[in-house]
Write a protein that binds this DNA or RNA. Structure first.
Length: 126
DNA sequence: CGCTTGACCGGAA
DNA sequence: ATTCCGGCCAAGC
C-alpha cells in the first residue's frame, strides 16, 4: 500500500502468494527473487519495477493469506526482515532444518531454484 | 496541513 | 563488516 504500488495490486499479490506456495519445505526465496520471477506487470516501467518490485512483494507478504508458507520469504541478505513476528519466522525455518549463522542463512545452500529443488517438476511457474 | 513510516535492494561511505 | 542513502507513494497521526 505504500511507496509505488502495482496497477492491479490484488492481481500482483496473488502472483506473489502463488510463487511463495511453490517453495519447498526447507528452502527459502528472497523478496527480490519473487519480484524477478513475476512477469513485468502491464503499464509498469521496467526500471521502476527493478527498483521497487521487491518492496511490492514485501507489501504482498504483509497481507498474506493463511495458506501460504510466508516464513520461507526472507531478504536478499539471507536475513529475516525485522518486525514483530521475526522470532516466530526463524523458529519455523529452523524447524524445517534451516541453520542460522549470525542471524542469517546461507542462500547458496537454502535458496530455492524454480524447477530444480521442488518436488513435482514445475514445467511452468504460472 | 506537515511529518513519519513502511516483510526491499544495491551501491556508497 | 556495518551503516547510510536514494528511489518515491500514501495512509495515519
Amino acid at each position: 500500500m505504500h511507496y509505488t504500488t502495482p496497477t492491479d495490486q490484488q492481481a500482483y499479490n496473488e502472483q506473489v502468494w502463488h510463487l511463495a506456495r511453490l517453495v519447498p519445505h526447507g528452502k527459502v526465496v528472497t523478496y527480490g527473487q519473487i519480484a524477478q520471477l513475476i512477469p513485468l506487470p502491464a503499464g509498469v516501467d521496467p526500471d521502476e519495477y527493478k527498483t521497487f518490485g521487491a518492496r511490492w512483494v514485501g507489501e504482498a507478504m504483509a497481507a498474506c493469506p493463511a495458506n501460504v508458507p510466508w516464513q520461507r520469504v526472507i531478504n536478499a541478505q539471507g536475513k529475516i526482515s525485522p518486525r514483530p513476528g521475526a522470532q516466530t519466522q526463524r523458529q519455523l525455518l529452523e524447524a524445517e532444518g534451516i541453520v542460522f549463522v549470525k542471524d542469517k542463512v546461507d542462500l547458496k545452500v537454502y535458496q530455492w531454484r524454480p524447477g530444480q529443488d521442488d518436488e513435482p517438476r514445475q514445467a511452468k511457474l504460472f
